[in-house]
Amino acid sequence: MIPIQYYLLFAGFLFSVGLVGVLIRRNAIVVFMCIEIMLNSVNLTFVTFSAYLGDATGQIVVFFVMTVAAAEAAVGLAIIISLFRNKQTLNINEINLLKW
């Protein structure tokens, strides 16, 4: 059996990749994908603990997260499409109208 540390390290690594991606990438779709990576790293942690503790709760939460992520993907992509139609760009630094 693979020790729990590996799973957790892998999940942490995935989360960091996603976080750095969100911080440094400019393309809205890539940022979006990075967020998905972060969500899935958390899912992985949940499943890991679920398996190790023999408790199904973690897995149930994963289903919730997946559902929400799917809904969020739909809404997010819709926003991205309408943003692109309006500004002909997906560079999030150029999408900065909402400010004082």
Binding site: V31, N93, I95
Partner: peptide, 14 residues
């Protein structure tokens, strides 16, 4: 603080 740039927000949040 309110720049309108998403990056800044995320950075501050993190």
């Amino acid at each position: 603080i309110q720049t309108g740039v998403t990056d800044t927000y995320v950075l501050i949040f993190v």
